[in-house]
Design a protein around this nucleic acid. Structure first.
Length: 830
RNA sequence: GCGGGCGUGGCGGAAUGGCAGACGCGCUGGACUUAGGAUCCAGUGAGGGCGACCUCGUGCGGGUUCAACUCCCGCCGCCCGCACCA
């Protein structure tokens, strides 16, 4: 063994050797229990960033640990390879085709992952842009289509002018494009949607099945789905054979309705104003509202503005005529696109009514208070008793909600309804680098799905990548013009491609049988491997990818294509990697490149630091000196063993004798205590930072132990401690441990070793220090036999000379002995 | 506005209600050395005392408890998600 740790040499050597022996290949069939460890696959942007390093280092520790614990671990990697950056690179730099750009990037990033020493089974590598993959993405689209879950509709959709494509609701953040932050615009377009709303109820309910998910993510999905219970009420329009249906969660306030507000785009608006002479005014108002950006449109800061349509509707329950307005604050997409104005009991309505002088009518009285409409300064939204509400007077409002709804139902004027905030998933994209939607439009036969036997619909290679309002595929006649699969007549292909989230909604199934040609996967293999036991990735996917994947799984389950109800049993959302308190970004100039770190300190150091610096869910502050510290630690491990290498080599690995005393017994105790601690920290809590610190403590203890004269040291204890140290450290720092493992005379890879089990007897201490407190303050420490019970402890504490001095002349109220910990004596000055 | 998280030394962070600050960084001192920015050893929350020790200390204010970083109530600050959702 060399005296010095040459990390480049060591890491290169073992990466090559693992590769050539295919150490991380995993068989589908094994007598070990299965464990599926998955990290979110990356977009092949060209280079790994620190977030990737963190994500994959965490996953690798879990995978290696579970393997050593005896599981057959599936740990695959692939590429979310369709997407805009490839196309933008082609536009910007010209000359380079998105396909080539992507393949180059994949090659580069695969190399980087190998340099990090992550234990992937590369035989299972997949790329979503490969025709062998997207063929099945298209096939899955067809399954949804045939089951009525994919449909095309004309709708106002989110348009990102910079990306020149539409976006799903989930991809709009703060009114801007999730990717480039450009404010989104509304455009009326015919687009393909998936009916995720059909699954809203199940997606919500089954969150309960996900015990291994962080509450935070579940709550975010719950809010996104946004279930509410309420009542639909029909208001006849005065003098017309039409009615307005309103959705409200507060039917108990129906007697307080003094006006009605429609969304500007509500389909009834045109009819209502026809012939009133206000058409121009209304049109102008609607135009103005629609021209607002999404940000301004939905800002709560913007003043609420309304405009009367001139029409009136009839409150079915009171028969009263109320004016119908349009208002900028009413959203067409939610509920029925219309709101009943109850000024006394809704703050927004209250402000609106005060501004436009609509009456404020109190119909809910708070207990023990009398609301006066004339002097009210805010709406009363809490619970109370109904007043001014005809036959419902005197009911508690929670009761009235039920009573009024069933009354309306009886009369046929309304109905109970569950409403969701979740909208259908818009999957069309007006871009080239994605999976083509397998649909053909025939003049005679209409919309025709491409037959499964004709898949894949291949992306043509030669296209113009200029950004435009439509997909570059539309400019490619060879692609567009085709024949109708039904009638054989001329037909045109759909030119939009699919949202890349569609590709990533099923990739975790593909890994089970990555080269399957007869279907998207081999069901037996999927049934064997799924669900994913541990999924690891950034919290930014809390809604997007994770909700879509859950949706896909439920659809696939219903189609009997998979057996699981949920794809990911346990989810770990890792925090960001920060530098100087901010997210790393080119514009801030605070980017630390993994390449540089690996070149300077090696992969083992990089991995160790990133796992040691913070617990995985928390944000991690990058610190160059901290990295240095981890490098020093690995050097310390190397030197420790290098000094003892010859000695160790000649020793057989015997289990130490059980009967040890003094320093030898203590060394063995520390060794086994470390096994216990590290096993729990990795296995039960994912607290890699404290696992590493426990290993550091073991090393510190070994340095002390090494200083003893050779004759005082028990060789078996030493050997065991070193072996345990290497094995515990192996999932974190796979290269250096493998090298030392070999150098100390072991055969076979350290990564194939069984995880050690601690000996409960070894960690028992004979004597421990307990604390004596007086009134909760530590006043004395006593070395006592570890087995002492409460009574014995109490006796010793009260007999102690110092304690006696301190409590002299005081009255003992109470003594609380806690075996193994302390004795607390409660006294009072007499 | 609603929901979630966080707040502990100079810094990153540890602590099943039971000795606050493990481990690492940084800093100070010492050893080794031609040299040390390598390595090894020791110290390192604040204040006081020559010292054994004493007082204070986990964002702020209350409470529960023999005992609170930890549990409860009320604030303050920062971060994240959703946001006119009827």
């Amino acid at each position: 063994m060399k005296e010095k740790y040459y990390f480049q040499e060591v890491e290169k050597k073992w990466q090559a050797r693992w590769d050539s022996m295919d150490l991380y290949a995993v068989p589908d069939i094994s007598n070990r229990p299965k464990y599926y460890c998955l990290e979110m696959f990356p977009y092949p942007s060209g280079k790994l960033h620190m977030g990737h390093v963190r994500n994959y280092s965490i996953g690798d520790v879990v995978a290696r640990f579970k393997t050593m614990e005896g599981y057959n671990v599936l740990h695959p990697m692939g590429w979310d390879a369709f997407g805009l950056p490839a196309e933008n690179a082609a536009i910007k730099h010209g000359g380079i085709h998105p396909a080539d750009w992507t393949v180059d990037n994949i090659d580069n990033m695969r190399e980087q992952l190998k340099q990090l020493g992550i234990s992937y089974d590369w035989n299972r590598e997949i790329a979503t842009c490969h025709p062998g993959y997207y063929r099945w993405t298209q096939w899955l689209f067809l399954q949804l289509y045939h089951n009525g879950l994919a449909y095309k509709k004309y709708a106002a959709v989110n348009w990102c002018p910079d990306c020149a494509t539409v976006l799903a609701n989930e991809q709009v953040k703060d009114g801007g494009c999730e990717r480039c932050k450009t404010p989104v615009e509304k455009r009326e377009l015919a687009q393909w949607f998936f009916k995720i709303t059909d699954y809203a109820e199940r997606l919500l309910k089954d969150l309960d099945l996900l015990e291994g998910w962080p509450d935070k993510v579940k709550i975010m999905q719950e809010h996104w789905i946004g279930r509410s219970e309420g009542t639909e009420i029909d208001f006849k329009i005065d003098g017309m054979d039409e009615s307005i249906t309103v959705y409200t969660t507060r039917p108990d306030t129906i007697f307080g309705v003094t006006y009605m507000v429609l969304a500007p785009e509500h389909p009834l608006v045109e009819k209502l104003v026809a012939g009133t002479g206000r058409e121009a005014e209304i049109k102008e108002f609607v135009r103005k509202v629609q021209n607002l950006s999404e940000i301004d449109r939905t800002s709560t800061e913007v003043e609420k503005v309304g405009l009367p349509t001139g029409a009136y509707c009839i409150n079915p329950i009171t028969g009263e005529k109320v004016p119908v307005l349009i208002g900028n604050y009413v959203l067409l997409e939610y509920g029925t696109g219309c709101v009943m104005g109850v000024a006394a009991h809704d703050q927004r309505d209250f402000e609106f009514a005060r501004k436009y002088n609509f009456p404020v009518r109190v119909v809910i009285q708070p207990p023990g208070l009398e609301l006066d409409p004339a002097t009210m300064e805010a709406a009363y939204e809490e619970e109370g008793i109904l007043v001014n509400s005809g036959q419902f007077n005197g009911l508690a409002n929670t009761e009235a909600i039920k009573a009024i709804t069933s009354y309306l139902e009886q009369k046929g004027w309304g109905r109970f309804r569950v409403n969701f905030r979740l909208r259908d998933w818009l999957i069309s994209r007006q871009r080239y680098w994605g999976a083509p939607i397998p649909i053909v439009y025939c003049e005679k036969c209409g919309t025709v799905p491409v037959p499964e036997s004709d898949l894949p619909v291949l992306l043509p290679r030669e296209v113009e990548f200029k950004p435009a309002g439509q997909s570059p595929l539309a400019e490619c006649p060879d692609f567009v013009n085709t024949v109708c699969p039904i009638c054989g007549g001329p037909a045109k292909r759909e030119t939009d491609t699919m949202d890349t989230f569609m590709c990533s909604s099923w990739y975790y199934y593909r890994y089970a049988s990555p080269r399957e040609k007869s279907g998207p996967w081999d069901k037996a293999k999927v049934d064997n491997w799924l669900p994913v036991d541990q999924y690891i990735g950034g919290v930014e996917h809390a809604i997007l990818h994770l909700l879509y994947s859950r949706f896909f799984t439920k659809v696939l389950h219903d189609l009997k294509l998979v057996s699981v109800q949920e794809p990911f049993s346990n989810l770990l959302t890792q925090g960001m990697v920060l530098k100087d308190g901010a997210k790393m970004s080119k514009s801030k100039g605070n980017v630390i490149s993994p390449e540089d770190i690996v070149a300077r300190y090696g992969a083992d150091t990089a991995r160790l630091f990133i796992l040691f610096a913070a617990p995985p869910e928390r944000d991690l502050e990058w610190n160059d000196q901290g990295v240095e510290g981890c490098f020093r630690f690995l050097n310390r491990v190397w030197r420790l063993v290098a000094l003892l290498a010859e000695e160790l080599k000649s020793l057989p690995a015997n289990a130490p004798r059980a009967k040890l005393v003094g320093a030898n017994r203590e060394m063995r105790r520390v060794t086994h205590h470390t096994i216990k601690k590290v096993t729990e920290d990795i296995g039960a809590r994912f607290n890699f930072n404290t696992a590493v610190s426990a290993i550091m403590e073991l090393v510190n203890a070994l340095y002390q132990y090494k200083e003893l004269p050779g004759t005082d040291r028990d060789q078996d204890v030493m050997r065991e401690a070193i072996d345990v140290l290497l094995i515990l450290l192996a999932p974190f720092a796979p290269h250096i441990t493998e090298e030392i493992w070999e150098a100390t005379g072991h055969k076979g890879s350290i990564h194939s070793q069984p995880w050690p089990v601690f000996d409960p007897q070894a960690i028992e201490e004979e004597e421990i220090t307990i604390v004596v407190q007086i009134n909760g303050k530590v006043r004395e420490r006593l070395l006592v036999p570890a087995r002492h019970n409460a009574g014995e402890l109490q006796g010793l504490a009260l007999k102690d000379l110092k304690v006696q001095q301190l409590i002299e002349g005081k009255k003992i109220i109470k003594v609380i002995p806690v075996p193994g910990k302390l004795v607390n004596i409660v006294v009072k000055s007499s």
